[in-house]
Design a protein around this nucleic acid. Structure first.
Length: 435
DNA sequence: AAAAGCGCTT
């Protein structure tokens, strides 16, 4: 095709145009046919800096940095793009030492580099593990008031993270004008590489939480491509994001890994079983239940505690033991009526993502947590915070219901579950629906 | 008409 176009150009007498010639040089260079590119370049009468630069770019693309450098040294006039292409040419061909060296030549010749050049220089320093040189390049950027944009900033985060300068990496990252998958990856992978597992996890959580649903696939890819073996909290975080975005497919894969990593943890079997049941994969669902039996994994019965008048009240699912159970159940019906008016619609559809939930065979409204809340509402005045402790994780439906309760009854509810605290207030929760 | 960031590829 390109050769046909070339023929047409000749036929129509357009070959003398310098723009056309430069484009042809670039075309052949892209194909990797430097011989053809050279033929055009040789016959040019008015070759300019762009033609020379295109040839240099062509040689670099084809891996021939020596020929590129020969032209670079020979050319009558260079501009900043030429310098940039030569330096990045070295970097692309893994000659990072030469890239840094040429940047030093650039400085000695009094040329002022721009952001693009500095990206190649800094990433070369990162590959060399040359922290001091990288810091000097950073100083150069600041001294010359260059704009630390997303790409340049990412290159800086990368070198600092890879050299273990975590504070500097974080400082540059926090100052980025925007963030994309690559900038997150560079920071988190760098932190993880140096064993800063907790900070890495914190940023990973932030990353998956600020991504839309479409970013889940990227997050999964990120986890799979981490330079270190992803641990259970990382997979758990991904799973949490799957719950929020209702992605059963990725949740299934994450759940499988988690079962391997934590075979005694009943929640993930239950989770997978629920996902299979919901997607009508009955055999797989049954398989999960059987696997639990086989491995002797027991799901602890769920309970909720609330302290009232100096006494600990313990509720279990479908509890009939509490002396005031009838009053409590009536109270719950009353709460249910009121929150339904406010827009709550209880459903089990979301429950497919629940981990460690209490058995669903009994109606959801019999969850121990709901009984405890009803008891708390019954015994306290509006404005008094209600504190509840659970041994399992809050289920989606209880979580939604509790948010409504906090608004309708104007009461703060503080629930400590197996993983974290939930502060319910004014219809919202401190976990931002993430747990 | 020419230029920039990750690491993995068991």
């Amino acid at each position: 095709m390109g050769i046909q176009v070339h023929a047409q150009i000749i036929k129509h007498g357009l070959l003398n145009d310098v723009y056309v010639q430069n484009s042809l040089v670039r075309m052949y260079a892209t194909f990797g046919d430097m011989k053809a590119a050279r033929n055009i370049f040789r016959i040019m009468h008015r070759s300019n800096v762009v033609s020379w630069t295109s040839m240099i770019a062509g040689y670099s693309k084809c891996g021939d940095v020596k020929s590129a450098r020969k032209l670079f040294d020979k050319m009558p006039e260079k501009n900043l793009v030429t310098w940039s292409i030569m330096i990045s040419g070295y970097a692309k061909n893994s000659r990072f030492d030469k890239a840094v060296e040429l940047f030093q030549v650039l400085q000695s010749e009094g040329v002022r580099a721009n952001e693009t050049v500095m990206v190649s220089v800094i990433s070369s320093c990162a590959h060399l593990g040359a922290l001091e040189l990288g810091e000097k390049a950073h100083e150069y950027v600041e001294r010359n008031n260059l704009d630390v944009n997303l790409i340049l900033g990412t290159a800086l985060v990368d070198i600092y993270a890879r050299c273990g300068c975590i504070e500097k990496a974080i400082r540059v990252f926090e100052g980025l004008p925007e963030r994309d998958t690559l900038s997150w990856t560079v920071l988190i992978a760098g932190l993880a590489l140096h064993g800063y597992a907790e900070i890495a996890l914190k940023y990973f959580e932030e990353m998956v939480n600020t991504g839309r649903a479409g970013k889940l696939a990227e997050a999964e890819k990120f986890v799979l491509n981490m330079p270190i073996e992803p641990n259970a909290p990382i997979w758990g975080t991904l799973l949490g994001a799957c719950r929020i975005h209702k992605n059963a497919e990725i949740a299934e894969r994450a759940g499988k890994v988690l079962i391997q990593l934590l075979p005694e943890h009943s929640g993930y079997y239950v989770l997978l079983s629920n996902i299979y049941a919901r997607t009508t994969k009955w055999e797989s669902a049954e398989n999960m239940r059987n696997m639990m039996k086989l491995k002797g994994v027991k799901k602890p019965p769920g309970y909720s505690l609330i302290v009232m008048e100096g006494k600990v009240h313990r509720f279990t699912m479908g509890d009939k033991l509490h002396p005031e159970i009838e009053k409590i159940e009536r109270m719950w019906e009353e709460i249910l009526r009121k929150i339904r008016l406010a827009g709550y619609s209880g459903n089990t559809a979301d429950a497919l993502f629940d981990i460690d939930e209490e058995e669903k065979e009994d109606a959801l409204y019999r969850h121990s947590e709901k009984l405890a809340i009803a008891f708390g509402i019954m015994k306290t005045k509006a404005g008094t915070p209600i504190r509840i402790v659970k041994n399992l994780r809050v289920c989606e439906d209880c979580h939604t219901a509790t948010k409504f309760i906090s608004k309708v009854f104007q009461q703060e509810l503080i629930v400590r579950d197996r993983n974290r605290f939930h502060h319910f207030k004014e219809g919202g929760c401190s976990c931002m629906d993430y747990w």
